[in-house]
Write a protein that binds this DNA or RNA. Structure first.
Length: 220
DNA sequence: TCGTGATCATCT
DNA sequence: AGATGATCACGA
């Protein structure tokens, strides 16, 4: 089912471009993978199918999806007008270590160092199998983009590290935002309260749709 | 249980 | 309509 790993960036891009114009149903059939019939239960299906199709590592774990290339894979749902319509999950916030982590070695910076964005029609426009893949784009943050991400990251992690995670709203941040990221709203994990360690709701970093729209529009 | 893959459901 | 907060599936 899973294709072999690409040996170069060029090979990865060729493979991604070969998928352009095809539906998830077509790709799944080629790999012998069943397509979920219930949309509500199909969250994550697009990303996982493309991992198989492009030969991402089976257990990337904390590392990039393509370890040999240092590249991360992200799918981007597009609305009828071709614009991203959802934010993009990047990684979990290290709730317990928010005060000690540094930008240069941060999980978020590592994950966004080199990304293959694969746009595809939104799940809201059809069944999972009908979703159509678009033109992939390999991206690395420009100095400007990195400065923007860093400023947001330092602001948000600063607040979390100071014990203000519970007061953070999704409105905070220009390119990034933090939002709940858990199986349910009742989940708690070890984090930082104003007076020390405590139990807090886990958060995740997301790229705002208007930020991904800009980077997809920029010329390679 | 947590992190990664995301989208859903609802409120404004 | 767009964004926020909540939720679903899966593997280690």
């Amino acid at each position: 089912m899973r294709r072999p790993s690409p040996e170069s960036l060029a090979e990865l891009v060729v493979r991604a471009h070969a998928l352009c114009g095809h539906t998830l149903g077509e790709v799944a059939a080629g790999l012998g993978v069943p397509v979920p019939s219930v949309r509500r239960s199909a969250k994550g299906f697009a990303g996982q199918l493309l991992e198989l199709a492009l030969g991402a590592a089976a257990d990337a774990g904390d590392g990039p999806d393509f370890p040999a290339l240092g590249v991360e894979l992200k799918t981007i749902p597009l609305g009828a007008r071709g614009q991203p319509i959802e934010s993009t999950f990047v990684c979990a916030v290290s709730m317990a270590e928010a005060g000690r982590e540094e930008w240069a070695t941060s999980r978020l910076r590592r994950r966004l160092a080199h990304v293959l964005f694969v746009p595809l029609s939104s799940a809201r426009l059809g069944t999972p199998g009908e979703r159509r893949i678009g033109q992939a784009r390999l991206w690395q943050p420009s100095p400007n983009e990195e400065a923007l991400l860093r400023a947001d990251w330092e602001d948000l992690m600063g607040a979390i590290g100071a014990g203000h995670a519970e007061e953070l709203r999704a409105e905070r941040g220009a390119a990034l935002q933090v939002r709940p990221k858990a199986a349910s709203a009742r989940v708690r994990t070890v984090g930082i309260m104003p007076d020390g360690a405590g139990r807090v709701a886990p958060l995740g970093f997301y790229l705002r749709a208007r930020f991904t729209a800009q980077l997809l529009a920029a010329r390679s």
